[in-house]
Write a protein that binds this DNA or RNA. Structure first.
Length: 794
RNA sequence: GCCGAAGUGGCGGAACUGGCAGACGCGCCGGACUCAAAAUCCGGUGGCCUUCGGGCCGUGUGGGUUCGAUUCCCACCUUCGGCACCA
């Protein structure tokens, strides 16, 4: 018999699919196909900073299974692909390899396309986009201008993270444990003028996870985002510093403890600190403001200096000493706090260090306020409300909300990104480049390597342009945009990738979006996934889209491990699919990577594991060919094998569609194949063979297509998904489990549909059961119809 | 500290709604084919005991609810992830 040879059948079918344009999905014409079920399947696009590794293979194969499954179930499926080709990952790769970023990036893209084709993924290549192409980034610039007009993109001085290795500012979202997510270098705190997106204005909207347009997001992802946004309710209260004739607002979540305030603290960076003429304070503020992040957080002992000034507590007129201390952060709340050492651990520590008074104002045991003037004796919540009310009447306070979230810093002092379309004019100030002058092309520069100053500024011919407003010579913005700006909207461009008049057509985004199913790493929970949600909220306000969330359903694949540790470039254990495809074939690689375990868990790759899958595919090949060469189908037989085929259809369908579980369907098809191999004479053998081939097609499309053809059929990729016949799922007999006192003692085959009493009678007939009853008195019998009988004795 | 997820054979894992624990695969053991090997096929494989009929134990630990718990409840242990001088 002919051997299973993936090396010949895989290229063959890849060519057939290409020629047939099998996976292209045209957009509906205006007014057409509105009611047709459609599905937008998307996986996070790759950075072309190298070629694909096995993590990508898992991600895209999962998307591929869903794509085939939906297509064959009558859905119109949009399944595009593109490249996140701008930004640090691609640029750093270019620096390492020593070529121009465009050259390296495009070379990697070409290589990835070949890899993707070899894996046989069902991608609509007519919609391919790359972030670095002018056709794409002109619209990134256009969107920037729209945000700018609305005041949602602004330039300001603020504490930012500076990566000394990448020589650029990086976003808070991509600083992990104080290190740059791209290169692992410890970041430094700098106060720099940078571009920001005003994502904080959408903090409350981004916490709306209960809108009807939400499909299904993992609870843990929402939790991570909630923690990141960090919403706290409380009050803002004005404290007065009489000597300086100033009111200082503080934010507190515990206005009920206001009477317990015994001192007042300013962050070292607080603007008021400069006004306090005192060399000791000055020295302390300068020293501590420079230290941030990790260094400041891990400091064991509290430090601070007294300013010599006093702030008045509005609730009782008490004068509280004003200190400067670095445990108060400028970027949270108002950068100033009222300190209540009795009810705040940090304040207590500080008070103990500097011997400041500690006054208890809450009786924790009874949950009431004590030593709190007119509010004494009130329950905590009531007291809190009354205190804020009273402050409000005096104009000294109001309820307030504070967030941990900070605005998204998106300007980068790097070459490989979309230029920010802004011009600085001495007379007109900051002037946006007019829409009709877009795109602002990324210029060539002699040296694109990072030097801490924007490389774009070195091209003076590009840099100096007439001011769009007054015509006088002005200077372009030379920073470029963060790559996450590109990925915040790329999924919208896929629906209309060649549009020359707009980023996309409203009709088409509203037809396809939100993305039906998004798949990608959870490492983007607070970055890309939050940025994209922010973008869509803004785009909806602009009337560009008719929905408020980008991704209806979200799934995070687990990390693939090789050799015991998480795959990462720094560990050097990143393996690509090419050698494995050479050795085992794409179908085996695809099937094994999903067979390894639940797709959302971390998994360890083993070469012996994939050999099990190869054995399965060979067995399938052999068994199906035997059937194909044997007798033709024997009609609609109701045999054990036919029933097995139908239960397998039901199981595979339910697992993929409802349970989103990709490894158990493979087990189910293996079972069917094993049973088919055991009973080749069963009249339902041809049907079972067809079913096995049809069900494995989303996983192993090449061998499935080949076997389908040998079984005398065509174009499995567009053949409707098999349907389980409910009549054949019903069994005529079943194995009745008999328990005595909850322990299984026997199993007997009985006809389905017997009344309970009859089942109990059959159970009692069993000699084994009788041995265990041993004449003891029966207290109770429990019957689970179609399953078991439990006899309970005294 | 706060929030979240998870603990099942030698290994990856299954058991979906409280009803047969260990499907499927890997590995291992035995057998067939072969001069031999590979490939393939067949059988076995949680632990302990056994008079070979079967019995007992077993899903991180300890309790509980229930006729019955991997599944529900309480407490704890361990691992992983998020936040963290956030007022």
């Amino acid at each position: 018999m002919e051997r299973y040879d993936p090396k010949t059948i895989e290229p063959k079918w890849q060519q057939v699919w290409d020629d047939a344009r099998a996976f292209e999905t045209p957009n509906p014409a205006p007014g057409e196909a509105d009611g047709e079920p459609h599905w937008y399947q998307l996986e996070m696009l790759p950075y072309p900073s190298g070629t694909l590794h096995m993590g990508h293979v898992l991600n895209y194969t999962m998307g591929d299974v869903l794509t085939h499954f939906r297509r064959r179930n009558g859905w119109k499926v949009l399944r595009p692909m593109g490249f996140d080709s701008f930004g640090l990952p691609a640029e750093n790769a270019a620096i390492t390899e020593g070529g121009h970023p465009r050259e390296i990036t495009e070379r990697n893209i070409a290589a990835i396309r070949v890899q993707m084709r070899r894996l046989g993924w069902a991608i609509d290549w007519t919609r391919e986009i790359s972030a670095h192409e002018v056709d794409f980034y002109r619209w990134t610039q256009w969107l920037f201008l729209s945000f700018f007009e609305r005041g949602l993109a602004y330039r300001a001085a603020a504490p930012v993270n500076w990566c000394p290795n990448d020589q650029t500012v990086v976003a808070h979202e991509y600083v992990v444990d104080g290190r740059c997510d791209r290169c692992g270098t410890l970041v430094e705190a700098r106060n720099l003028e940078q571009w920001f997106f005003k994502i904080t204005a959408y903090a409350d909207e981004l916490l709306e996870y209960d809108l009807p347009e939400w499909g299904d997001w993992p609870e843990r992802t929402k939790t991570i985002q909630r923690n990141w946004i960090g919403r706290s309710e409380g009050a803002e209260i004005l404290f007065r510093i009489e000597e300086l004739d100033t009111d200082i607002p503080v934010f507190t979540t515990r206005p009920d403890t206001l009477f317990g305030a015994t001192f007042f603290v300013l962050a070292p960076e607080h603007p008021l600190v400069e006004r306090i003429a005192n060399s000791e304070v000055d020295e302390y503020a300068k020293r501590t403001a420079a230290r941030r992040g990790e260094a400041r957080a891990t400091e064991e002992a509290k430090t601070g200096v007294f300013t010599g000034h006093y702030a008045t507590n509005p609730v009782n007129g008490e004068r509280l000493p004003v200190w400067v201390a670095d445990y108060v952060l400028m970027e949270y709340g108002t950068g100033a706090i009222m300190a209540v050492p009795a009810h705040d651990e940090r304040d207590r520590e500080f008070a103990e260090t500097f011997d400041l008074p500690i006054r208890q104002v809450i009786d924790e045991e009874h949950g009431v306020l004590v030593d709190s003037g007119e509010f004494t004796g009130r329950p905590i919540e009531d007291g809190e409300r009354k205190i804020v009310e009273s402050l409000r009447e005096q104009g000294r306070g109001a309820p307030a909300v504070s967030y941990r979230l900070r605005d998204w810093s998106f300007s980068r002092q790097r070459y490989w990104g979309a230029p920010i379309p802004i011009v600085y004019c001495d007379d007109c100030g900051m002037v946006p480049v007019p829409e009709e002058e877009l795109p602002v092309l990324l210029p060539e520069v002699e040296d694109y390597r990072p030097k801490g100053v924007p490389p774009l500024a070195s091209n003076e011919e590009w840099l100096y342009v007439p001011c769009p407003r007054c015509g006088k010579t002005a200077r372009r913005e030379a920073d470029t945009m963060d790559t996450f700006v590109d990925s915040s909207w790329y999924y919208l461009r896929y629906v209309d990738p060649r549009n020359e008049d707009a980023p996309f057509d409203r009709r088409l985004v509203d037809y396809w979006c939100p993305v039906s199913q998004y798949i990608g790493g959870i490492d983007h929970a607070t970055g890309h996934l939050l940025y994209s949600r922010f973008f869509v909220r803004v785009l909806r306000e602009m009337g560009l889209v008719g929905f408020g969330e980008p991704f209806a359903r979200l799934f995070h694949q687990g990390w693939l491990q090789m050799g015991g540790s998480k795959m990462s470039k720094s560990k050097g254990n990143v393996e690509g699919p090419d050698a494995l495809v050479d050795e085992y074939g794409a179908d085996a690689v695809r099937t094994y990577i999903l067979f390894m375990g639940p797709a959302d868990q971390d998994m360890e790759w083993t070469d012996t594991g994939i050999e099990g899958i190869v054995r399965f595919l060979r067995r399938l090949w052999r068994v199906v060919l035997e059937v194909a060469e044997g007798a033709p189908a024997g009609g609609a037989a109701n045999t054990p094998l036919a029933r097995k085929a139908h239960t397998t259809i039901a199981k595979v369908t339910d697992d993929i569609e409802r349970r989103f579980q990709f490894h158990t369907p493979i087990s189910a098809v293996m079972e069917l194949t094993n049973e088919l191999a055991r009973s080749p004479e069963d009249p339902a053998a041809p049907f079972a063979a067809e079913t096995a081939v049809s069900l494995i097609q989303p996983y192993a499309p090449h061998v499935a297509e080949e076997l389908w053809q040998r079984l005398g059929h065509e174009r499995l990729w567009e053949t409707p998904w098999p349907q389980a016949d409910p009549a054949l799922l019903e069994r005529e007999t079943f194995e009745l489990v008999i328990q005595v006192n909850g322990r299984v003692r026997d199993r007997v085959e009985v006809p389905a549909g017997l009344p309970d009493e009859e089942l109990v009678a059959r159970a009692k007939d069993s000699p084994r059961v009788q041995a265990h009853l041993d004449g003891s008195e029966i207290k109770q019998t429990i019957v689970v119809p179609g399953k078991l009988v439990n006899i309970v004795t005294k």
